[in-house]
């Protein structure tokens, strides 16, 4: 065998993405919700890398850099919201803030 077929790398990315999606839907704790979001973004980055290396172009890695930037921004804002949630409601349950007021 010489080389990995692109299908296999894309299947791995799909499995990771689906696991992240399932975690996002299953969990109610906000820490786990944020971790599932990280998993999904990482799977999208893996698909970019797989496509980029299959065609031998550097665009895949450049897009992965942007995905990492997005993940860092999302994680910092999400964790700030998490701290506020814990401070005001004394819980990590996302259902506690289902009613937003202004």
């Amino acid at each position: 065998m010489n080389g990995v077929p692109l299908d296999h790398a894309l299947v791995l990315a799909s499995i990771l993405f689906t696991l992240g999606l399932a975690g996002l839907m299953i969990r109610r704790n906000m820490v786990f919700v944020l971790m599932s979001l990280e998993i999904m973004l990482n799977a999208a980055g893996l698909a970019f890398i797989a496509g980029g290396t299959a065609w031998g172009q550097p665009e895949g890695q450049a897009m992965f850099l942007l995905v990492i930037t997005l993940a860092a921004a999302e994680a910092s804002v999400g964790l700030a919201l998490l701290i506020q949630l814990n401070q005001r409601f004394k819980t990590l349950d996302t259902d506690a803030v289902s009613r937003m007021r202004g």
Partner: peptide, 15 residues
Amino acid sequence: LWRGDIGLVIEGETL
């Protein structure tokens, strides 16, 4: 993915 028949193989050339 299975039915799509992409046919590309990642050779592992370093970018």
